[in-house]
Computed example of a mutant assay.
Amino acid sequence: MRVIVTRPQREAQQWVLDLSAQGLQAVALPLIEVGPVHDTADVVRAWQHLGDYVGVMFVSGNAVDYFFRSNSALAPVFIGSIATKTRAWATGPGTARALLRQGVAPERLDAPPVDASQLDSEALWQVVGPQVQPGDRVLIVRGGDSLGSAAASSNAAQGAGRDWFANRVMQAGGRPEFVMAYQRGAPEFGSQARELAQQAATDGSVWLFSSTQAVVNLSTCLPGQSWAGARAVATHPRIAAAARQAGFGVVQESRPTLPELVACFKLMQQTAH
């Protein structure tokens, strides 16, 4: 049984290594391409005024990496002992690790507990909601779809978490603001990638989806392909719903931690025999 890892290239390769170390056969088939925004003026402006925010919410590890890439040593607000109220908020452990890699002090970082039932915007709000007082500004660092991206139609689902979070900030009397730190796009499917995807639709492989956009991009890259005989593991109920809507015959849900994903894959492996 192969695991098809659909995350962007860099993350996909790391997941392949981690899953392989657990005795699983894994292969990367990135279904999302990420890159910098063409105009970084808004990100630079956000860095210049970072101390004005009570918290900065990062929607993903890519949001962290591209946001910090645009920092020209303007305001190391999250690092050291600078007296500021600004905190870094992560939606899950991968985003939290990305912040720590950038030098964010652990005591300035908030994230859902690792044993939370979900690791998402809703779980994060349970942790940081009490920090938001009327009039407080909150910055949400996100990605955006490239012009012509195959995932444009999935904007509503893809942004559901961050929009839900922004609504909660407003209900608390706060002022949410967005800044786009990177762009997402659909991959160009070459013959090798196309052949792998078509094989994995019917050969018992298990697709690992951690984004609704990846599901949409797959359907767009292979129009007319039946997924009725394909199996998938999704790391969030919204992603699972997208996979079922795309036609996947078997869809399991798992929290996005390595031990739980490995356990889910091995159980699917056992039940297939």
Results as ranks from 00 to 15, higher is better:
residue 142 R to I: 05
residue 75 A to R: 15
residue 55 G to T: 11
residue 246 A to H: 05
residue 104 V to F: 06
residue 187 P to A: 07
residue 69 R to A: 15
residue 211 S to E: 04
residue 37 V to T: 11
residue 266 K to V: 07
residue 217 N to C: 03
residue 105 A to W: 09
residue 113 P to L: 06
residue 91 T to Y: 08
residue 233 V to D: 01
residue 138 V to W: 06
residue 150 A to Q: 13
residue 97 R to Q: 15
residue 141 V to A: 04
residue 265 F to Q: 02
residue 172 A to S: 11
residue 94 G to N: 08
residue 232 A to R: 00
residue 9 Q to Y: 10
residue 150 A to K: 13
residue 58 F to W: 12
residue 10 R to D: 12
residue 113 P to E: 04
residue 140 I to K: 03
residue 262 V to I: 05
residue 46 A to D: 12
residue 34 V to C: 03
residue 210 S to F: 02
residue 2 R to I: 01
residue 118 Q to E: 12
residue 224 G to C: 01
residue 185 G to P: 04
residue 242 A to G: 00
residue 146 S to L: 08
residue 129 G to F: 03
residue 160 A to W: 05
residue 193 A to V: 10
residue 227 W to R: 06
residue 147 L to E: 15
residue 270 Q to K: 13
residue 216 V to T: 15
residue 250 V to L: 12
residue 264 C to H: 05
residue 201 A to R: 01
residue 238 R to V: 05
residue 188 E to S: 14
residue 98 A to C: 11
residue 255 R to M: 10
residue 191 S to I: 07
residue 143 G to E: 02
residue 52 D to I: 03
residue 184 R to Q: 13
residue 152 A to V: 10
residue 222 L to T: 02
residue 247 G to M: 08
residue 23 G to D: 10
residue 192 Q to I: 11
residue 272 A to C: 02
residue 238 R to F: 05
residue 18 D to R: 12
residue 163 D to A: 15
residue 193 A to D: 15
residue 176 P to Y: 05
residue 61 G to D: 14
residue 4 I to G: 00
residue 12 A to T: 03
residue 211 S to Q: 03
residue 214 A to R: 02
residue 27 V to W: 08
residue 40 T to E: 15
residue 187 P to I: 02
residue 207 W to P: 00
residue 115 D to G: 06
residue 21 A to G: 14
residue 133 Q to A: 15
residue 259 P to V: 04
residue 122 E to M: 07
residue 25 Q to A: 08
residue 145 D to Y: 09
residue 134 P to F: 11
residue 263 A to I: 06
